[in-house]
């Protein structure tokens, strides 16, 4: 277990850099994590991240890529454009959660 600082916020992260306490998340953290993978967050990224955060609360776990594309207006093609280095992990990670459990 380690800590990382993004701007003015310090959060606990696991060995892979995923937050261990989603309650510590804020937009500054998301922007800092996004910068690490060369992403500048746009409104379209926020559609995904806002959905992930809401769905993680509702379902008790973060959604996989397929669920995100089914329940938002972000298509499969677009989500790969938004998170080219891996939407499966980055959507959850940048929203302050761990990896989703599913395979789709």
């Amino acid at each position: 277990m380690a800590e990382k600082t993004y701007g003015g916020s310090t959060v606990s992260v696991d060995a892979d850099g995923f937050m261990t306490d989603s309650g510590q998340w804020n937009k500054e953290v998301a922007e800092g994590m996004a910068a690490e993978v060369e992403i500048t967050l746009t409104d379209r990224h926020w559609v995904v991240l806002d959905f992930v955060r809401q769905d993680a609360v509702d379902q008790g776990e973060p959604p996989g890529v397929r669920r995100i594309t089914k329940l938002t207006d972000v298509s499969m093609k677009e989500i790969y454009q938004l998170f080219p280095k891996g939407p499966g992990i980055l959507a959850s990670k940048l929203a302050g959660y761990g990896k989703p459990q599913g395979c789709v």
Partner: peptide, 12 residues
């Protein structure tokens, strides 16, 4: 197919 999809989801 699932393996290929999982790879893509990880950016591989």
């Amino acid at each position: 197919l699932i393996l290929a999809n999982a790879a893509r989801m990880m950016g591989i």
